[in-house]
Design a protein around this nucleic acid. Structure first.
Lengths: 186, 186
DNA sequence: TTTAATCAATACGGAACCGTATGGAGAGGC
DNA sequence: GCCTCTCCATACGGTTCCGTATTGATTAAA
């Protein structure tokens, strides 16, 4: 991967996600990011009207990928039980250092506590994902009502935990999924 | 509750928690807080050496309460099954606007993403709480190993969700607890 | 009443950042 | 060879914040 001499808007956005995950939302500003990229903020204000527009660009990229990257992976799997199991596997591989997949998730969630638009985007994405889990449960003949929310909350909570410890999410997630699946009619 | 003419260090810390939950970590600074309290930062620097010391004061207060407030409530309950059920009830009443109880939890967790000391305090508190849940499960004759982590992750995840939607955490938490309890030997 | 201690107001220099304005370097079209 | 377009550097004024120093006000003690 050769670094181009010129930066694109997406290069800035990617640097933004790196800074967000490593340093937090206070690092999402023009001059600190420019230092990271070894340019001046002249470049920043060429690509973006202002800092708020930069935030919007990050948010747009994340939101368009956050749901579909998961749904696309699961949609390849035919039966709903395997889909639920796959969700457990995915949750154990947070693949941070990414922006598109599941990575940077906890950082964005944290960012949402101090940024209105981020909070709304997170709410939309969560809604889509919970609805997706809900559909899987319905296909299994299970009452989706407390379980979809529980599954997703466990996913979020485990992801948060693994930012601070090195433990594996997989056993917990698998255990819960099997516990739920064991209640499905067959 | 009459407002004293003089402010104490704890008044500043409480204002800090309010600002943290409502506006995020960037609001934890001397001059903005002084405006909120309708004084000047002269008062702030009387009570605290600098902003970092103020952060430490917030953190110390939170950490001393975060674990014991939960453990004390549960320790009154004799049998472990009821204790686990009570944990579910507690999780449904986040009681934000507090600093001592469980409130401000998600805000502090988010803060931890951009503050080393906060992250360490959260890790310590999480460790204590998970160990506590683990003990309850052991008393129930259950293998604590994936379940303690799962219960706590669900708790964290549900709490995070309820900062963005108005849904009730109680059914999901109850459902999980009963599902786990149904596996206990009797 | 004087004195001392506590808490807050004010004023200051310095640092970091925002957003703008302007100039310059390089690549491609003509 | 010039022109234009793209992208970045530089320089600037304005804002917000930090931390310190000094002074002022209020309360409690002696």
């Amino acid at each position: 991967m050769v670094k181009s001499p010129q930066l694109s808007a997406e290069d800035w956005v990617l640097a933004g996600f790196r800074a967000l995950t490593h340093k937090g939302p206070h690092a999402l500003r023009a001059e600190p990011l420019a230092r990271d990229l070894k340019v001046t903020k002249g470049s920043f204000y060429w690509h973006f009207k202002d800092v708020a527009a930069f935030h919007d660009a990050m948010l747009t990229l994340w939101e368009t990928r956050a749901f579909h990257d998961i749904a696309d992976a699961l949609n390849r799997i035919p039966d709903p039980a395997s889909r639920l199991r796959m969700l457990a596997e995915i949750s154990a591989t947070p693949s941070d250092e990414q922006y598109g997949g599941i990575g940077a998730e906890t950082a964005i969630r944290a960012w949402g506590r101090s940024h209105q638009g981020v909070a709304e985007a997170v709410r939309r994405v969560d809604g889509q994902r919970i609805a997706y889990v809900r559909r899987i449960l319905e296909d299994l003949g299970l009452a989706p009502d407390p379980w979809a929310r529980l599954v997703y909350a466990a996913y979020v909570g485990l992801e948060d935990q693994s930012t601070r410890d090195a433990a594996d999410n997989l056993p917990a997630m698998r255990g819960m999924v099997e516990m739920i699946l064991s209640q499905a009619p067959r």
